[in-house]
Design a protein around this nucleic acid. Structure first.
Length: 506
RNA sequence: GGUCCGUUCGUCUAGCUGGCCCAGGACGCUAGGUUUUCAUCCUAGAAAUCAGGGGUUCGAAUCCCCUACGGACUACCA
């Protein structure tokens, strides 16, 4: 039987990196086994629907290079893939459960239950649960007469369907990451399966859909572990236990400082994105930063994310998506949550950047030049500029500031360098050097270097004392690629012009 | 409060069938080297009494128990 897995986010906002990692692991698992990866949208809570969230999810996965085989927007044999569009398919199962005595109608209003909850909390400090101990004190088809229930339903009174949690039974499930997990049903509550608005809750919808979509492995976040026994019970009561999917609950992604689940707020509070793409809240207009806009390469982002909770067991750190598909295994996923480490993300990005083709970097640089309204002479010229700086950039956004001098004469000059290297006699040296270069062939950087060295020798000057000021007037910067490579690349005219017209007035 | 899950360098982690671990790698950090500068690259170093305690054993990070701490869940949210 072929493997089928799904990533099932709810469109309540942007997908955060924990979600991206869940999607990634699902994807890697499916692809390694030649299986199918499905994107299903869990929008059973119409109250939390956020416009644009679904589109964001699709775009984010696409940017990451995580492609699904079936799902919303592309369809497939088990569609529709939006739960709101499958609305009609859940109710019969809920009613079947009632008929079989595994569920019941409940007429308590949300307000009544809320009241009960606060009361209970005052008295016992514990949490009120709608369960085997309390359900007979509440208004439902177990306490009301058959007649009464029928009239209420006929009158169209609001109701929910709750699971009738069996008493004192051990439910065990095997988690692919954690092993055997056993829970006694008396600690579980009578969860709502079907809401008064005609929609199922996650618990029912997820079980019905996973079954109908022939999902073989449910790989999801650890926050679902406590309700997994409930899901097992549902499979059992629905008669599907023999074809129930395998479960794997992934460890959480934690805040870099302190503990706790990484949340949407943490990112901009701590100065790093928690979202793959920038997101603008449609209601508040609040903007949250994204990895794409912050200058990360998708492959670096994915490599980094894959290692948050998984490792190959070898000393290899660099894995492209194909490597990950090859090597990934659920058995090697950690049990404990992982804290997010921005420094390591930056290191991965720098690594991927410096190994990228010049043509790709050139393309990115041209985009930035265009956006800044800076003219560039030729594609090859830009590509080579990118080549010269690729080992000293960490983020894509560093491309432009690091290579600006290839396109514009500097107007500002690094203050640190002026302070350290600019002496009263330096201006004269630069002028002498300019005369030397005037009669030098710029077609090879070697010749420039030779001419420079010869000059130093005749004047008995040290390299550092002269090269630094030269770099300063030509590029405005205190560091950068090989100076003679720069001069060769920008050409004789620009070099000599800059050596004559610089203004260090800052 | 209850249930469940977890706990190895600052961080990500190796270690899963006990001895090769007075714990290895990576990021970061420190120091050297290469380089005309910055970055890259190379080398070296500091950094975990394996949460704590008790067992089992000739021997435990690795097996068992207890404790502590952390987290998740505990909605007609997912």
């Amino acid at each position: 039987m072929s493997v089928r897995v799904r990533f099932a986010p709810s469109p309540t906002g942007p997908l955060h990196i924990g979600g991206v990692r869940t999607a990634l692991y699902n994807y890697l698992f499916a692809k390694q086994l030649g299986g199918t990866f499905i994107l299903r949208i869990e929008d059973t809570d119409q109250g939390r629907f956020v416009p644009g969230a679904e589109q964001y999810i699709i775009e984010a996965l696409s940017w990451c290079g995580i492609y699904f085989d079936e799902g919303v927007s592309i369809g497939g044999p088990y569609g529709p893939y939006r739960q709101s569009e499958r609305k009609e398919s859940y109710k019969p199962f809920a009613e079947q459960l009632v008929k079989d005595g595994h569920a019941y109608y409940a007429f308590d209003t949300a307000e009544e239950l809320e009241l009960r909850r606060t009361e209970e909390h005052k008295i016992s400090k514990g949490m009120f649960q709608y369960d085997g101990k309390t359900r007979l004190t509440l208004r439902n088809s177990l306490t009301l007469s058959e007649e009464e229930v029928r009239t209420r339903l006929e009158k169209g009174e609001q109701y929910v369907i709750r699971i009738k949690m069996p008493e004192n039974q051990e439910v065990r499930l095997t988690d692919l990451i954690r092993g055997e997990v056993v829970v006694n049903t008396t600690t579980l509550d009578d969860k709502v399966l079907f809401k008064s608005d005609g929609m199922p809750t996650y618990h029912l919808a997820n079980v019905v859909d996973d079954h109908e979509m022939k999902i073989t492995h449910v790989i999801r976040g650890e926050e679902w572990l406590p309700s997994a026994p409930l899901h097992v019970l549902l499979y059992r009561f629905l008669g599907w236990e023999n074809v129930m999917p395998a479960f794997a609950h992934l460890p959480l992604l934690l805040k870099p400082d302190g503990n706790g689940k990484l949340s949407k707020r943490d990112g901009d509070r701590l100065g790093f994105p928690v979202f793959p793409l920038r997101w603008t809240d449609p209601v508040t207009g609040e903007v949250s930063s994204g990895y794409r806009e912050a200058g990360y390469l998708p492959d670096a982002f994915i490599n980094f994310l894959a290692f948050l909770g998984w490792n190959p067991g070898t000393e290899q750190e660099i894995f492209d998506i194909e490597d990950l598909i090859q090597s990934f295994s659920l058995e090697r996923v950690n049990k404990a949550g992982a804290k997010f480490d921005l420094e390591k993300a930056r290191w991965f990005n720098q690594h991927y950047l410096k190994t990228k083709d010049d043509i790709i970097l050139g393309l990115l640089l041209r985009k930035q030049l265009d956006e800044a309204g800076i003219a560039w002479p030729a594609i090859e010229y830009v590509d080579h500029a990118a080549h010269l700086i690729k080992e000293r950039i960490v983020l894509i956004g560093d491309l432009l500031p690091q290579s600006l001098f290839f396109f514009l004469d500097p107007v500002t000059f690094d203050a640190e360098t002026i302070k350290k290297r600019w002496k009263p006699e330096t201006a004269e040296i630069i002028e002498n050097l300019r005369l030397v270069f005037e009669s030098t062939d710029f077609s090879h950087s070697d010749e420039l270097e030779t001419a420079f060295k010869n000059y130093l020798e005749t004047k008995n000057l040290g390299t550092a004392a002269v090269l630094s000021p030269l770099r300063l007037v030509v590029t405005g910067m205190g560091g950068g690629p090989g100076m003679f490579d720069i001069m060769h690349h920008i050409g004789k005219d620009a070099t000599l012009r800059r050596m004559k017209h610089y203004k260090l007035d800052n």
